[in-house]
């Protein structure tokens, strides 16, 4: 009896390993942070984009309002792609779109807005990329849906029609 237990248990163990590898093949191995957990928005000090004056995060975000924070940069190609969507969102005007200009050259950024329009209610500067990290972002573009000083949802990469629909649904 003892002689049979060993081979069987070995085969079962390898069977399980096979199954796990097989399952593991299915999903992508590129890691993206969790996008759905609610988090308090971080506090920070920075400069306003046009005036260059110091601003505090608490003066930008008020309670009871819905915000969309969009991290963008003039050198980022996907930002151009999502920009028209932001312009459209702005027309509906229930949502306050806040821009965070990421590691950018001010001149280039201004030209970018002149060319494609400015959907942002306010823009502040993140020159060295450290504020983006406070937000838990790791690239451009990324967008955060904010309500009551809480991050409701995070969009990594350029916004698309699907995410716009989701945002619209939330505003209503």
């Amino acid at each position: 009896m003892k002689n049979k237990i060993l081979p069987f248990s070995v085969i079962i163990i390898f069977g399980i390993i096979f199954f796990i590898f097989y399952k593991g093949l299915e999903d992508s191995k590129i890691y993206t942070p969790d996008v759905n957990t609610k988090k308090e928005i971080p506090l920070f000090n920075t400069k306003e984009f046009f005036s260059g004056e110091n601003v505090n995060s608490s003066s930008i975000f008020e309670l009871d309002k819905v915000y969309l924070l969009n991290i963008w940069s003039s050198w980022c190609v996907p930002c151009r792609q999502e920009h028209p969507l932001l312009m459209n969102l702005n027309l509906e005007n229930k949502l306050n779109i806040i821009g965070m200009n990421y590691k950018d050259n001010l001149k280039n950024a201004e030209n970018f807005l002149k060319e494609l329009g400015n959907p942002y209610k306010e823009i502040f500067i993140d020159l060295d990329g450290t504020i983006a990290i406070e937000w838990g972002a790791y690239g451009v573009p990324e967008s955060f849906l904010i309500y009551n000083n809480e991050i409701i949802k995070k969009y990594i990469g350029p916004l698309n029609q699907e995410s716009i629909d989701e945002i619209n649904l939330f505003i209503k």
């Binding site: 590129i30 890691y31 942070p33 590691k103 060295d128 990329g129 450290t130 983006a132 990290i133 790791y138 690239g139």
Partner: peptide
């Protein structure tokens, strides 16, 4: 998170620099 095989120390991506 950008070059996912490297540590932040080894990487020179924008994210790692920040």
């Amino acid at each position: 998170l950008i070059c996912q095989g490297q540590s932040v120390y080894d990487s020179d991506s924008e994210f790692a620099n920040s």
